[in-house]
């Protein structure tokens, strides 16, 4: 670790010049915009989840705000399909120093594997598999350790680059799923995807999102994410990328202390691109004040406090 770059992190052999990574599903379609995010301080970007074929997703309303920096969405994995999206991946990859993670999904493990392989060929540095979107069919994969194992194994066999597995919090025991993914060859875990939720309009008596059930993101889910990262990091030895409700540098630090080696940002982009730079600069300031050479030194420090009951 270079002393002059306290925010450099390394995950599965990939060097990130910032631990801040764009979360899947947020803004992840326009290559120039991905490059702009890098300029503002993102070390990596994760594309929208891409499937084997074009998919329209659900009608609107598909993303709404609930107040208090909390959001509910059911986009339904809308995406152009890997063949049409490949040239966008190649374009995104043109930015020097930006780690490009392509999120993929499919109807079966072959679809996942084929889509991942095509994404890698187009230039992806890493593949993230979405087995956890709470408002689409893929959610049934990430709730079962055996099926998770099968899908992770299939994708791992099809690619040469690192494989990240994004986990759902909508399970009884996320640790079992995480361990299963590790055993199948995952190079890192991403925790957490959105929390399953529902909002109902009291005047029309109807769920607001066109799809009904959605995924809750934003400030409200941060403690859930931090808890899951903490428990996962006790059980697995692969790196964990923390995700869920990060709006400032303190939130990033919490995830690191719980055991994360990097983090993903999503809902906070509600406040514009400047928030990335603010978080990055405040992290550097925090490390300088504490005379820490690297943010990685913070990973998992909260585990020292064993007297606290961390189990359910």
């Amino acid at each position: 670790m270079k002393l002059n770059k306290p925010l450099n992190v390394s995950i599965a052999g990939l060097e990130f010049n910032s631990p801040l990574i764009l979360a899947s599903g947020i803004l992840g379609v326009s290559p120039p915009t991905m490059h702009i995010l890098a300029d503002y301080g993102m070390g990596g970007i994760t594309t929208k989840s891409i499937g084997p074929v074009k998919r329209k997703g659900y009608p609107n309303p598909s993303i709404i705000g609930l107040g208090n920096d909390t959001f509910l969405n059911a986009v339904g994995l809308a995406n152009p399909g890997i063949e049409r999206f490949s040239h966008e991946i190649t374009e995104i990859k043109k930015k020097e120093g930006l780690v490009v993670i392509v999120s993929v999904f499919g109807d079966n493990s072959n679809d996942f594997a084929r889509t991942a392989s095509l994404a890698e060929k187009a230039g992806a540095d890493a593949i993230e598999i979405n087995i956890s979107c709470p408002h689409a069919e893929v959610s049934s994969i990430g709730v079962d350790p055996k099926i998770t194992f099968e899908y992770v194994r299939a994708v791992k066999k099809a690619i040469h680059c690192p494989l990240f597995v994004k986990l759902t919090p909508n399970v009884t025991d996320i640790v079992k799923i995480g361990m299963s993914a590790e055993k199948a060859g995952a190079d890192a875990l991403v925790a957490i995807n959105t929390v399953s939720g529902l909002a109902i309009d009291i005047n029309t008596h109807r769920p607001i999102l066109a799809h009904g059930i959605g995924g809750l993101s934003g400030r409200a889910i941060k403690p859930i994410g931090v808890r899951h990262v903490f428990n996962l990091s006790k059980a697995v030895s692969i790196p964990i990328i923390g995700c869920g409700g990060i709006f400032n540098y303190e939130d990033v630090l919490e995830y690191f202390l719980a055991g994360a080696s990097a983090v993903q940002l999503g809902s906070c982009l509600y406040y514009g691109y400047d928030i990335i730079t603010q978080i990055r600069d405040n992290l550097i300031r925090y490390l300088e004040t504490r005379k820490l050479d690297s943010i990685s030194q913070l990973t998992g420090l909260a585990h020292h406090y064993k007297e606290i009951g961390f189990d359910d």
Partner: peptide, 22 residues
Amino acid sequence: MRCGFGLCGLCVVDPLGIKICQ
């Protein structure tokens, strides 16, 4: 657009990262 507040990215116009909604 889906969200209207800068998250879905569908209304971005290239190459400036300009979001039509925001």
